[in-house]
């Protein structure tokens, strides 16, 4: 019989390692994490004379969660390849799923300062119905699940932190630079719009922009957007759980 283990403690271990130690011992990281999502938000707001502020806030919420998820790729790679901590954890009663969920929560914890500021800004500048707020919450959550799962799968494929930097560059381009998260997709010239649809973040952005009332999409388009983001998140989660190399073969 396996010993009874405290699952909460096991989750907390990942949060300690990937968020709390740095936040408590090096508070300067809090400033860095607050500033990260605001650079593009500020540029878009100034260039649009404030008209795109609500959509930029919604976009910053998406990007904060996607960045949190994709950061996990580098964090996991760092812990696995530099510190060799993952090997020690593999040999312990912690399962791959508990480790993944704990690390995902740690990324949210790390993003709490930025999220807090964005939520305050959203409360002031984004006027959405209760249903709209619920929709925004789920969009952000689904994109986060997608991003952390992607990060986990990629981290298990790396044997050196340099590889994780390369993956980070590719993922960042596909998920951040390509999709029109901070502005409407109609701002992108038509041939390039098709390219933007290669990124799941574009579908999330359409739902968000529809919710804040900046752009109106048909019900069919919004339904397709939901279907796409749920499907990619489900597929990536499946890959993370089933395909990730926890115990090597």
């Amino acid at each position: 019989m396996a010993m009874k283990r405290n699952g909460g403690s096991q989750l907390y271990a990942s949060i300690l390692v990937n968020a709390i130690f740095a936040m408590v011992n090096y508070p300067v990281v809090l400033i860095s994490t607050v500033l990260a999502p605001f650079s593009l938000l500020i540029v878009i707001t100034f260039v649009s004379h404030g008209t795109l502020l609500p959509v930029a806030i919604a976009g910053a919420l998406i990007m904060t969660m996607i960045s949190a998820g994709t950061s996990m790729q580098q964090d996991l790679s760092h812990l696995k390849n530099d510190f060799k901590l993952q090997d020690m954890i593999v040999s312990s009663p912690t399962s791959a799923l508990v480790y993944l969920v704990g690390m995902a929560i740690s990324e949210v914890v790390y993003s709490i300062p930025a999220l807090a500021v964005l939520i305050v800004l959203a409360a002031v500048y984004v006027h959405a119905t209760l249903l709209g707020i619920v929709a925004m919450f789920f969009v952000v959550l689904i994109m986060f699940v997608f991003a952390v799962s992607l990060g986990f799968v990629l981290s298990t494929l790396t044997s050196d932190v340099v590889q994780s930097w390369a993956f980070a560059g590719i993922v960042s381009t596909i998920l951040s630079a390509l999709p029109p998260v901070y502005y409407p997709i109609t701002y992108i010239p038509l041939p390039w719009q098709y390219l933007a649809y290669l990124s799941p973040a574009t579908y999330a952005a359409e739902i968000m922009q529809n919710t804040v009332g900046l752009t109106t999409f048909s019900a069919t388009t919004i339904l397709i957007d939901w279907a796409v983001i749920i499907a990619v998140a489900a597929v990536m989660t499946y890959l993370a759980v089933k395909k990730a190399k926890w115990r090597e073969d």
Partner: peptide
Amino acid sequence: MKVMGIATPYDHVEMYLNARGIP
């Protein structure tokens, strides 16, 4: 294996015991 410079010896032990699910 390397220590995490952001953490103390106590932090390391605390983290590992948590990872093992010790109450």
